[in-house]
């Protein structure tokens, strides 16, 4: 059996993302990376929690934040997490078309989220003159939320690249781990967002 045949079995194994040694290695290494990302975001959260009362003026969290938009963004990201679960469900059933479709829906929701975030930042800048250098709170806020937005952008580019690159290849044991890991990354983005909407927006409104 040639290398190609090994990667394209007639029937997908139960866990196509972990069927090859490369897949197993990617799986472990990626979780290691996510552990590191947790610490990275913790340092940004720690900074934010320590500095969010240093507002240097009336642009306080309570004054700035509007919960309607944040609620909408939360729903978009949470739903996109479910749609990527659907994509992985179809991957395990070896249905490449459906997996691509659900990934496309995930990407659209992610783009909508990103659009809302850009609108939010622009709104703060133009309506409140609340910029990166306005106060310690402003720097900590833009760094934390912007870093998360950067992750969303990276995740979107990652998924889109995978979709385009593998469009004609179909699903096999070579790219299944790639898709699986990209979906893990997407879920992790939602994990971080749960803490952002809780710590930054909701706790900011409670005061």
């Amino acid at each position: 059996m040639s290398h190609e045949d090994v990667l394209n079995p007639k029937h997908m194994p139960h866990d196509p993302e972990k069927a090859t040694l490369e897949g197993k290695n990617k799986f472990l290494a990626f979780w290691f990376f996510l552990g590191g990302e947790t610490v990275l975001f913790a340092s940004l959260f720690g900074t934010y929690i320590a500095l969010n009362s240093s507002t240097a003026g009336e642009n306080t969290p309570e004054h700035l934040f509007g919960l309607e938009l944040v609620f909408l963004m939360t729903m978009m990201l949470l739903t996109s997490s479910l749609t990527s679960v659907y994509a992985m469900y179809h991957m395990k059933n070896h249905d490449f078309r459906k997996m691509q479709t659900w990934l496309a829906i995930t990407v659209l929701l992610g783009l909508a989220f990103l659009g809302c975030e850009i609108y939010e930042f622009l709104h703060y800048i133009h309506e409140y003159e609340f910029t990166f250098g306005s106060s310690a709170f402003a720097s900590a806020f833009y760094t934390l939320v912007g870093f998360h937005g950067g992750h969303v952008l990276f995740g979107l580019s990652w998924i889109v690249t995978l979709m385009i690159r593998n469009q004609k290849r179909g699903l096999n044991l070579y790219n299944a781990p790639k898709f699986y890991i990209a979906s893990l990354y997407w879920h992790f983005i939602d994990v971080v967002w749960v803490f952002i909407f809780t710590v930054v927006y909701l706790m900011g409104k409670v005061g």
Binding site: A42, F45, I49, A50
Partner: peptide, 18 residues
């Protein structure tokens, strides 16, 4: 192990910074 390790360090980081 990775995630709980990460979460433990994360908690420590937040306590330290504050």
């Amino acid at each position: 192990l990775m995630m709980y390790g990460g979460a433990a360090v994360a908690g420590l980081t937040i306590i330290t910074f504050s």
